[in-house]
């Protein structure tokens, strides 16, 4: 067990919760506001209940069924191998899984690059990227750092004492964002001291205690912390300021050409018939206009970033190249 205990227990807890809710797997539809596009969708979730993947799949299923676009939605949690187990399952049992959509996100790109699992997104049928979250660099509320240029000045003055923390392993998403930003600001990304924490709470404690100078984290999490009066957001990796927190400056406007989106989206089994793929794509595309989706989206603070079909492929290839280049430079590949 090299995940820490807390994380392990959290996963165990949510899995247990999932197993107890097996009886309520199927969500029935109360209303028929929209024309039904698909009878049913089975969502395969490569992690435990309660995580980001789980929330995305269940929220999407809820919106699709409530809006009447899909008859029924069922959910299956299959954790293991950092998501690799579910991917392997979907590929091995492709023929019997034409009714299945698997949720995934940026780590499928990162982890197939590092070889944590043997497959990559090309082995699956791409359905659509649906939502996303930008990344952000935050500092503690009492920190003397107020902008990216302050952080860079502190870093240049004492690079060994200006550590940036994050909630992912070295070479994981938070580290890559920190390295990407420092590189775009003209620094050597390998020189940045990145300190990994295994849970957001511990990284926050480290930030407030002064152990790390700044924290690389997801934007929606950063907004929650900023609203609680804990942190200052000094840079967002979006191209324009985000409506959810207008006062947070983007990296771009501070002269740092770094943009990054942690997307979430859906994949289907390889060899999915074209008519089925079109059906799923249509259901998801229509979902964005429904009030049911808007309710789910707003409740979770997600940002709509819709990439369907060929666009999704182009987007993933672009991200794979950008992340792959950066990881090579950092020495992880």
């Amino acid at each position: 067990m090299t995940l820490t205990l807390t994380k392990d227990l959290t996963r165990r807890a949510v899995m247990a919760a999932a197993s107890l809710t097996l009886a309520t797997l199927t969500v029935a539809t109360p209303t028929w506001a929209e024309e039904k596009i698909a009878d049913s969708i089975h969502f395969l979730i490569p992690g435990g209940a309660g995580g980001g993947w789980d929330g995305t799949a269940r929220g999407t299923g809820e919106a699709l069924t409530k809006a009447g676009l899909v008859g029924t939605a069922s959910f299956e949690n299959m954790s293991g191998g950092g998501g690799g187990k579910a991917i392997g399952y979907l590929i091995e049992n492709a023929d019997s899984n034409h009714g299945t959509l698997m949720v995934n996100s940026t780590p499928i790109v990162i982890r197939s690059l590092t070889g944590v699992f043997p497959h990559n997104f090309r082995d699956l049928t791409l359905v659509a990227g649906t939502i996303g979250d930008y990344a952000a660099i935050v500092v503690g509320k009492d920190s003397s750092i107020n902008s990216m240029s302050d952080l860079l000045a502190a870093y240049q003055a004492n690079p060994r004492k200006t550590a940036i923390g994050g909630g992912s392993v070295p070479g994981g998403m938070d580290h890559l964002v920190a390295a990407m930003v420092m590189k775009a600001a003209g620094e050597d990304p390998t020189g940045v001291k990145y300190i990994p924490y295994d849970a957001g709470g511990k990284a926050m404690a480290a930030l407030l205690s002064g152990e790390i100078a700044a924290l690389s984290t997801g934007f929606s999490e950063a907004v929650d912390l900023a609203n609680a009066g804990e942190v200052k957001i000094i840079g967002v990796t979006a191209n324009d300021r985000v409506a959810a927190y207008e006062s947070a400056p983007t990296m771009q406007e501070q002269g740092i050409d770094a943009s990054f989106v942690n997307w979430r989206g859906f994949f289907a089994a390889p060899g999915l018939p074209a008519d089925k793929l079109a059906m799923y794509e249509a259901a998801i595309a229509k979902m964005y206009d429904t009030p049911e989706w808007e309710e789910v989206r707003a409740r979770n603070g997600w940002v709509n970033i819709h990439n369907s079909g060929a666009d999704f492929k182009t987007f993933l290839e672009g991200q794979e190249k950008a992340i792959g280049d950066l990881m090579k430079e950092l020495g992880f590949l």
């Binding site: 090299t2 995940l3 392990d8 954790s79 293991g80 699992f117 070295p170 295994d198 992880f332």
Partner: peptide
């Protein structure tokens, strides 16, 4: 055993996917 918070590679799993989380 497994994939920890500090390394981006699983350790001592002997290729067994079920051991990846330790």
């Amino acid at each position: 055993v497994g994939e920890g918070a500090l390394f981006n590679m699983p350790r001592f799993t002997m290729g067994v996917m079920d051991l990846q989380s330790g």
